[in-house]
Design a protein around this nucleic acid. Sequence first.
DNA 1: GTCTTCATGTAATTTGTTACATGATTTC
DNA 2: GAAATCATGTAACAAATTACATGAAGAC
Lengths: 183, 183
Amino acid sequence: MSLRHALLGLLADQPASGYDLLQRFAGSLDNVWSASQTQVYTELTKLAGEGLITASEEGPRRRKEYSITPAGDTELRNWLSTNESKTPARNEMLLRVFFLGILPPQQALDHMAGIRERSRAGQDALAALEQSTDWTDEAFSDYGRIALEWGKRFQTMNEEWAQWAEEQIEARRPGESRRETAG
Amino acid sequence: MSLRHALLGLLADQPASGYDLLQRFAGSLDNVWSASQTQVYTELTKLAGEGLITASEEGPRRRKEYSITPAGDTELRNWLSTNESKTPARNEMLLRVFFLGILPPQQALDHMAGIRERSRAGQDALAALEQSTDWTDEAFSDYGRIALEWGKRFQTMNEEWAQWAEEQIEARRPGESRRETAG
DNA sequence: GTCTTCATGTAATTTGTTACATGATTTC
DNA sequence: GAAATCATGTAACAAATTACATGAAGAC
């Protein structure tokens, strides 16, 4: 049920159409909370039905602009003040690692190497995002930076952990020649 | 669709009943992939229907024991060999942080402090889990440790990041007296 | 006048949550 | 014999994904 809060949060900054909001979800927000086109439009309809946002008359291309209502603002602040919630843990990457013992050590090593490389690529992607973002006039600038910093630290942590895991697997493996040193 | 792979992974180690598997999900696996009772039983029925696992006759308390089939094993290995998937990012903690600019700085600071404290508590919980786990005879021992290490690093990263964020918010805040030094 | 972008929806299906229901066996 | 644990399910609902559908306005 956080999609609605993401929408309320964006609308708290300024009124926007479903299409506008989708750009945000397709852009930087995608790293934090992703949502599909269908989801955004249906949730906006629901929110309007509950009086948390209001829709303007249809404009040019049937465009409707939504604004947050006082009720919506209350709901948003209430959510923001909430203690962190019971989001169930579901980490597919970790789940795979958990079962990696099923594969032979070399395949497990390859798997971890893949994770390490993707973490590296993730760092590059975030660095590029940082570069391309206009931090000057954005309303979410300060906290956007803080969220971005989380992503960078997360990816760094992942890369280092994968590296460490590879060393662990190597160390535990029967002492034959390793792939990169093998003839 | 990873629940099925979690179940196949557990059954690859040894046959088990739905009830048995639920203990795993309620225990350490809950940090990696959580699942409810209803979900486990319905997914087992589906998996059996698709021939990826087989059920034994009903035992003592209507107990059924499931075993993985060759088809299920193939499916599991296939999933393990897959490049990391397109799991959409949905991080409610980060989403809240992203919108924290809506609240006055002091409330934002309190929020970050809460995250920091919960990360600390998370580290303690994982340390306790590590202590209470029997690492000697478990089939998933090596990779369970690696997964646990991820959790520890993740929580540490979170704590440090929250600390850093608090400093950022402090620094940007109008230079009045701070709460802890005030009055 | 065609292509792209803007703009919004519906329908079917899958996945996950919450609530409810039931009964057998063991332990004390 | 009462309580705890073992053991499995159904039904209703909410959230998310995938596929499909349509049409207006602007760019070239």
